[in-house]
Design a binder for these strands. Structure first.
Lengths: 139, 139
DNA sequence: CAGGATCCCGCTAGATACTG
DNA sequence: CAGTATCTAGCGGGATCCTG
């Protein structure tokens, strides 16, 4: 007896929808930049202040992003390199020197992130205010 | 013997940095929009296609976002309401009718998200290509 | 210096069942 | 219809130790 038909159809629909989501460029971008450290690394390499892009060594990045673990720093840098957003350059001095630079693609992404930053600075205050009011009202 | 001084200083620095991060508007915004369903809900309420904002009922949202669980849909809607990005309207028909609308603040956020979407559609292909090349090359 | 390899814990998404 | 409540497994991410 195919009494499971309804549940099966829902499950199938969900799979298809998930596949659709996984393939959606916007979704992929969101997944990319929502990594905790991506924005910070990009900002550091692109120049936090109004100076231009700059090379940074692994240890320099580690210092600038005081809260990051080596694991996450390495992992994030690898994924950014893989995606062509930063480049990794090994100079065989002794001990070895590794520098990271943002690519053109990375810079263009960074500009989008600046748009986010501007919205955040303009409106996050309102959001937080709403959040508090919501918390302090009953019924 | 204060041999732990170094480790303690690092731990303290990390806490401060984390606090700094937690208070950073950009970080908060990223945390907000990287929720898996926020972008979809906002897009649905703001009008996926080029039609304007529209009201949607809970069940309509549930259908449009085929992959979402009731729990996550409710939870996400609550948080968006709390932040003043959508409004929730209960009409005491029988059975009860609940509609959701995007606020002006939500619309302005949605516009920022559109910027993300454009970048994604323009450049995510490059990123994926880089990703593949990275995977298929050795050494 | 710049990582690689492991272990492990907390959180959260999801499934399921129930309700006004 | 529009949720609430509970339980659990999976995994992202940190801490720690080790290496070329």
């Amino acid at each position: 007896m195919p009494t499971t038909t309804a549940a099966q159809k829902r499950a199938r629909a969900k799979l298809e929808y998930d596949a659709f989501l996984a393939g959606c460029p916007s979704r992929q971008l969101l997944d990319r930049i929502s990594d905790k450290w991506v924005a910070l690394i990009l900002a550091a390499l692109a120049g936090d202040d109004s100076t231009g892009p700059r090379s940074l060594r692994y240890s320099e990045l580690s210092r600038r992003l005081a809260g990051v673990s080596q694991k996450m720093l390495t992992q994030t840098l690898r994924s950014l390199e893989r995606d062509g957003l930063v480049t990794r350059t090994v100079t065989p001095t002794v001990p070895v020197t590794v520098t990271y630079d943002v690519t053109d693609l990375g810079i263009s992404l960074q500009r989008v992130m600046l748009g986010l930053k501007e919205w955040a600075e303009a409106h996050m205050g309102d959001v937080l205010t709403n959040r508090e009011h919501y918390a302090t009202r009953e019924s």
